[in-house]
Design a protein around this nucleic acid. Structure first.
Lengths: 339, 339
DNA sequence: GTTTAGTATGAAACCGTTTTCAAGATCAAG
DNA sequence: CTTGATCTTGAAAACGGTTTCATACTAAAC
């Protein structure tokens, strides 16, 4: 018994025209400032608009103009602080541009991601920002035949596709070097998901730093995580059971570090007194863990911002100005000099 | 020198019709299954669709049907885990419904929120979910004259507006009772922002529980926070300086608890051995703090889900089935019996 | 006063769909 | 065979805007 939903229907440009006693064309012209209009008509139209509290139908506008004033954002996990921070950057870049973000989530699954991108295109978004994910460069390239796309975590620069990549390997080297500098020699590594480019690059950075310092890579010290707290926890337990000696743990990301830290806490192992921990990402929370987490800061906010700005530039036919964003070691209290 | 953006234009229903040698009406009918169509034409059309990889223009569809298949979501802070979890719930409820969420953020500022809602309506969203915020019930009521709105954190039930409120007072009582039960008698409270309804309700719950237990309310034990880590940290410092004795701290939310915990850590005060801490929200992270945080779980995911589901029901003319969602005490390791 | 250029405005076409309406085709019943 | 009912299909109008085009009107130039 559908309570006859009394949705008072919105007013249209035609009504405004009728009330003001002018033609629709004139109203449109006034709205867009696309031609001069006599003062009296303008007054009348403005009065009518205020009166009806008329707001143009963005759907109709988008259809006619061929620009929906929307940027599609493909994220992977709404709950992950990493992605939300990037989202904040995107939001900031889009603010005031007239473009609204349409956010969809792919959940790290290539098929779902492709489907979501199709959805965005069906909604006729004007451009797309892809935050990481598992789509192949080729697929992205194909999508980019239709509209500008900026993807993070990859290096592409073809047609209307751009990539913004952070130097993960360098970041991992930064972290490892720091531990080495503090005197650590047995450094465990909790890896991310191997199908993940970034994860492999970080592992590579860890190895590279070790080798540069003349320390043999010990496979027994690297154990698989999953980029989540649970993986860090399990990994540390595993590590402890193998009875390998180590004085520091480098975690593939901060969430992993949180889990690792809890595992140590459970066994009464002190951080950083007994074991040092270093993370990767610098999530907002890492400033408030006990102890505050030493980590490698990824400028994800700036990355999101730059990605969105680049899409906007592509849309305006400008040549985008992509600058390499640096990773940075954030020294807090979870790692200390070995005695 | 706008590099002639080669956006290969998307195919339209008319092209499909032309290629298949039928009228646009027929194509539309096949797409929507709105009438029977002879087998040969259907085959031809399906071939043409696959051939052109045609996807209907959702903008045009929305314009024509008067339904944009979009639900507007007004959130406050993309970075806050509280809101993102609600967002996840919304996403889950919308999945497979054909409706896409259009997420905008109001940043806790009533003016901005109103403006964002206007924007959503200009985009002709079919319904709106408002996650908390500072809009007055009256304003929401006015918006709800045009479309269905479900708002969390309030009790409204007028026309097309619905509210989903959690019993904050009860939650705070749960937490306080638990501490009392553990033998605590001097319980500090770090309050949220006073202009925030929930914050006041939680304070009231704390007082109610105290009084029910025959313990005099001590104003010196409640200190102002800001719902953020920084506020918790400052508040604990303040508390410690007043030299008031207390054995437990009840924090208005988990983020506050994180800050409080760090302040204690800095002074070498152990949790829970020296002081117990209890939070409110049960953010995902609270399972991985050291020690894991005892807290009151707010079912925000379910709340977001229910909110979105309710909008959908309102849209279909069904009478929504709103069930009160219970708060729940999550006992972890940050609070313990006093000796 | 006629011609020219320029201005303000409205009519109508269009964006890509859906849907009403009417017509043509098919077929069973009489 | 008609007749009427049923089914398939296309033409055209509509959704709410923008934009091209044409026109009536001024104002300037000769």
């Amino acid at each position: 018994m559908s309570q006859s939903s009394h949705a008072s229907t919105a007013s249209t440009l035609h009504e405004v025209a009728r009330i003001a006693g002018v033609s629709p064309s004139t109203v449109s012209r006034i709205l867009n400032g696309t031609a001069r209009v006599s003062d009296d008509k303008r007054k009348a139209v403005e009065a009518a608009i205020a009166n009806l509290s008329y707001k143009p139908n963005l759907l109709a506008q988008g259809l006619k103009k061929g620009r929906a004033m929307t940027i599609g954002i493909l994220t992977q996990d709404l709950a992950s602080p990493f992605f939300t921070e990037a989202l904040m950057g995107v939001e900031a870049a889009l603010a005031g541009s007239g473009y609204a973000p349409l956010i969809v989530s792919g959940h790290w699954h290539a098929d779902e991601e492709a489907e979501r991108v199709e959805l965005l295109m069906a909604r006729r978004v004007d451009g797309i920002v892809i935050l990481s994910g598992s789509l192949s460069d080729k697929q992205i390239g194909r999508f980019a035949e239709r509209l500008p796309i900026v993807a993070t975590g990859r290096r592409i620069d073809t047609g209307q596709a751009r990539g913004i990549a952070l130097d993960q390997l360098e970041g991992a080297r930064l972290a490892t070097d720091y531990l080495l500098e503090l005197g650590h020699r047995q450094i465990a590594f909790i890896a991310g998901l191997p199908e993940h480019d970034d994860a492999r690059a970080r592992l590579a950075g860890y190895r590279a730093a070790l080798e540069a310092a003349g320390i043999a890579f010990n496979p027994a010290l690297v154990v698989q995580g999953n980029f989540q707290e649970s993986g860090g926890l399990l990994a540390v337990n595993e590590l402890l059971e193998t009875r390998q000696r180590f004085t520091a743990i480098f975690c593939a990301n901060d969430q992993t570090a949180y889990g690792a830290r809890l595992a140590l806490y459970r066994r009464g192992i002190r951080v950083p007194d007994d074991i040092s921990i270093i993370g990767f990402d610098d999530l907002p929370n890492s400033n408030y863990t006990t102890p505050p987490l030493t980590t490698v800061r990824q400028p994800v906010y700036e990355m999101g911002k730059q990605a969105a700005r680049t899409v906007l530039q592509l849309l305006n036919g400008e040549t985008p100005t992509l600058t390499q964003l640096p990773l940075e070691l954030i020294m807090r209290e979870s790692a200390r000099r070995i005695l």
